[in-house]
Design a protein around this nucleic acid. Structure first.
Lengths: 119, 119
DNA sequence: ATTAATACATAATATTCTTATGTATTAATT
DNA sequence: AATTAATACATAAGAATATTATGTATTAAT
C-alpha cells in the first residue's frame, strides 16, 4: 500500500465544505483554528487546511445558512465557535452521502476494486 | 445506500487528470470524445466531462510530457488519439495511488468506516 | 527577550472548472 | 431532401475555490 506525505492541493479541492460540515456534525461546536488542527491530526498531516481556505469557507457557509456562531473570549483572545443550523445538518448529511457514493464510483472507474457497487 | 444522479462539480475537481491518465493506462490509446463517453457510460452519467474541461486538460498533459498523440482521419473527420508516455505511466500510477490513499483518509475523516487504514 | 503557537481576517494571484461560442463532418430522423 | 442529432475538435469569458502573502493581536514557550 502506497502512503503519501501530503496530498496535492487539487485533490482536496471541493471536499473542504464536506470535511468542515461533518466535523461540526460529529463534535457539536468548533472554532476555526481547532478545525485545522483536528484535521491535521486525524490525517497525520496529509490534509492541512490553510487559513486562506478555511475562513472564507466558514463565512460562505454562514452566509448560506448552514452554520451559525457565537464568540467566546478567553481573556482578550477571541474564538468563534461554529455550530450547524438545521439546514446545515441536512447539508452535512447530503454532502457525506454524496462523497460516499463518489468514492464507490471512483473505485470502479480507477479499477481499485474488482466489482462495482452502485456506480 | 444513497444514490445520486450526478455529482456536484466541486467534487469532481482535481480528479480529472487522474481519470484521464488511468483510462489511457488501461486502454492504451483513446481520443477525447471517446474519453467523455466512456466515463459517462462507466459512471451511469454521474460524471460527465465537459469539453471545456477535457481539451485544456489534454493539452496541459501533453505540454507536461505525460501524453503524446497522433491524428487519425476517418474520411475528413479527425481524431486525436492520445497515448501515455513513459513519464505519463509513472504519473498515472502515482495519481491513482494517491487517490486510493486519499479515499482511505477521507473514509476515516468522515467516519464512513469503523477502523482506520493507513490514514 | 525573542520566538512559536494560537486566533482571527483579507487581498492578490493561480488554478481549474462551467458556460458559451465556434467550426466542421457524419449519421439519423422527419 | 432537409433538418436535427451526434461526432470531434477548439477556445474565450467568467465563476468558484484554493494558495500564498500579509496583517493584527494575544498567549505560551524558549
Amino acid at each position: 500500500m502506497y502512503i503519501c506525505p501530503m496530498y496535492t492541493s487539487e485533490l482536496i479541492k471541493g471536499t473542504l465544505k464536506t470535511i468542515i460540515l461533518n466535523l461540526l456534525k460529529e463534535r457539536g461546536k468548533m472554532y476555526g483554528y481547532e478545525i485545522t488542527q483536528t484535521v491535521k491530526e486525524m490525517t497525520k498531516g496529509k490534509i492541512q487546511i490553510t487559513e486562506g481556505a478555511l475562513y472564507p469557507t466558514l463565512h460562505s457557509l454562514e452566509k448560506k445558512g448552514d452554520v451559525g456562531f457565537e464568540k467566546e473570549y478567553l481573556g482578550k483572545r477571541v474564538r468563534k465557535y461554529y455550530t450547524l443550523t438545521d439546514q446545515g445538518e441536512e447539508t452535512a448529511q447530503a454532502k457525506v452521502n454524496e462523497f460516499a457514493d463518489f468514492i464507490n464510483t471512483m473505485k470502479y472507474l480507477l479499477d481499485l476494486e474488482p466489482k462495482m457497487g452502485n456506480a
